[in-house]
Write a protein that binds this DNA or RNA. Structure first.
Length: 294
DNA sequence: CACTTGACCTGTCCGC
DNA sequence: TGCGGACAGGTCAAGT
């Protein structure tokens, strides 16, 4: 679940909470979640302080003064929740928040002080926390192939179009999900962006007019920005750095709204499968292009 | 090369 | 109530 807006929200939260603090202990219960050598942990994690926190695509980067960086991918169900008091930080008990940590899904615990800990929770164990020399972070495979940041200045319409040209025969949805084309879009915001641009997710890139591509480009940026404002989407697992839910899904137009009415034309929203992923569309607003036509 | 499928895991929900 | 199966935000590797 955590896509760009969720990871950005966690980044902003953690920046306020742990920058300048020193890590004095780390524990983990699942080696794949924390695949680091004891020597690296001793030498470059323990007794290191957090310099700053960054994000690239869906990946979070916690830079330490040891010149190492904690590179973190939350994958589907990962959380980074900070607890700085006996009481759990913020949130609303009635809102299905996490009430006590560590819990069953806790994989890694970073201790700053007795009452100051950061929990990496991950129910499905797909996520990970890797300790990598800061100078090498940019050259790990994950980043070498990663596409541009969709909210950065360098992500121009021209650049977007150019990337699309390489994927002419693919469905536009699979292209949006491809992190080497654009970094940070996942299933939720792909569906929302395609709806806003009135494009059917199964459309081949070659079928999209220049005008449509421009609409999509603008839609991606608009959707991601509004999702960041809403502090991301919480369907089930996602929480911000203080354990709070994101509110974007309350205003989502199609995602997880199958059977409800399209807010634009009031036709019923349906759910299909595209590129192996559950996909939500309005069949009326997002007409499927027909082969041989137009 | 492009696209699909299965794998990695756990939990939840739905139908029987 | 219990059980089996499908499904869930993301990426890889392997197969077609």
């Amino acid at each position: 679940m955590p896509e760009l807006p969720e990871v950005e929200t966690v980044k902003r939260g953690l920046t306020k909470l742990i920058v300048g603090k020193k890590i004095i202990d780390v524990t983990f219960d699942w080696p794949k979640s924390f695949p680091n050598t004891e020597a690296d942990v001793k030498g470059f994690l323990l007794n290191s302080s957090v310099n700053n926190i960054a994000r690239r695509g869906k990946v979070l980067l916690i830079k330490l003064d040891s010149l190492y960086t904690l590179v973190i991918h939350l994958k589907m169900t990962g959380q980074l929740v900070y607890v700085g008091d006996e009481r759990f930080g913020a949130g609303h008990p009635s809102d299905n928040m996490i009430t006590k940590l560590p819990d069953k899904s806790t994989r890694v615990i970073f201790t700053f002080s007795e009452k100051d800990r950061l929990f990496f929770n991950d129910q499905r164990k797909f996520g990970w926390v890797r300790l990598i020399p800061t100078s090498q972070v940019k050259s790990i495979d994950l980043f070498k192939k990663l596409g541009p940041e969709p909210l950065s200045k360098i992500f121009t319409f021209e650049r977007f179009s150019e990337r699309l040209e390489h994927r002419k025969n693919s469905s536009i949805k699979s292209v949006l999900l491809d992190q080497t084309v654009i970094a940070g879009i996942g299933n939720i915001y792909a569906d929302e962006s395609l709806w806003l641009a009135k494009i059917h997710p199964e459309s081949k890139v070659s079928e999209l007019t220049n005008a449509k591509r421009k609409l999509l480009y603008l839609a991606i940026r608009e959707i991601l920005n509004s999702a960041i404002k809403a502090k991301g989407s919480t369907d089930r697992n996602y929480r911000d750095a203080e354990g709070r839910r994101g509110s974007y899904l309350k205003t989502a137009k199609v995602f997880r709204r199958e059977g409800l009415n399209c807010p634009r034309c009031s036709h019923s929203i349906s759910k299909i499968k595209v590129a192996g992923r559950g996909t939500h569309i309005c069949n009326f607003c997002q007409r499927k292009p027909k082969k041989g036509m137009k």
